[in-house]
Design a binder for these strands. Structure first.
Lengths: 133, 133
DNA sequence: AATGTCATGTCAGAAAATCTAACATATGTT
DNA sequence: AACATATGTTAGATTTTCTGACATGACATT
């Protein structure tokens, strides 16, 4: 499991930003969950929390829907993909133990800090369009 | 402006996930905004939306606070950093025009899709600890 | 010792975002 | 025509976030 994979599997986004990023309605996203195409994590208060991987999947689902494939078909396709990945993942595990969510968060924080060190800190004023002139 | 910079400046995260990622309280984050150390965007309904850059900044602020520096000092330090970045940014701009938030979102979506194409789609069951055994 | 400032905690009330469950509907299928 | 599928819509409840006010502990200044 690489750092990037940990990062991509962190449950961070509530449904609002995900709707915007995917152009899917809340209804659609919940329906896909109901049919087990995705399984976003939940907050303490039962709100859905999506990872970048979840968002990837939703975008794929969208593609497949556009191709006329139904829930069952999409479920199978996603499952096959998943199997391929697992099959190709032959790296020996350094550590067998599970990471707690807290540990994952610490890890991500470290990564964000590191990335930041070699990155810009633009935008002192929140209007992101300012970043482009 | 690189794709990565666009990605890092997208206002996506509500305050809850940011609290978890930074180990800051909402009170602290709002206080830093009040003192103009950060300026997160706002949703239509006035909720704060943070970008990865904002999160970087918050982590830096945390460091500086730990070093005993006060708001005014931190503000100056962040400003200086910002200036350095601007000074070093000598690339000729391909396009002068501003990008709308919608365009940025489309761009990010494209990036996520592309990244996803060459990436794993693990986690069919939402419990992220499953990714580690 | 009293006062002030700074960074943060805490609380209350309001508003926004999200939840589930139910019913509605358009389109395609048997 | 009846049915199934994917999505829309609505209602009522719950969670999350908002602002503003007041409280507090640590320090500095008087």
């Amino acid at each position: 499991m690489t750092g990037s994979n940990i990062r991509r599997s962190m449950p961070l986004f509530p449904i609002g930003p995900v709707m915007q990023l995917t152009d899917l309605t809340a209804r659609q996203i919940r329906y896909y969950e109901e049919h087990q195409l995705i399984s976003p994590a939940r907050s303490e208060g039962n709100r859905r929390l999506f990872s970048l991987n979840d968002i990837d999947k939703l975008l794929e689902i969208k593609d497949l829907i556009d191709q006329g494939i139904n829930m069952a078909g999409i479920k199978q396709l996603l499952f096959v993909q998943n199997q391929e990945v697992i099959a190709s993942d032959v790296k020996p595990l350094k550590s067998e133990r599970e990471l707690s969510n807290d540990e994952i968060r610490r890890h991500l924080r470290k990564e964000i800090v590191q990335a930041g060190r070699f990155n810009q800190h633009l935008s002192s004023q929140g209007n992101i369009t300012r970043l482009f002139h």
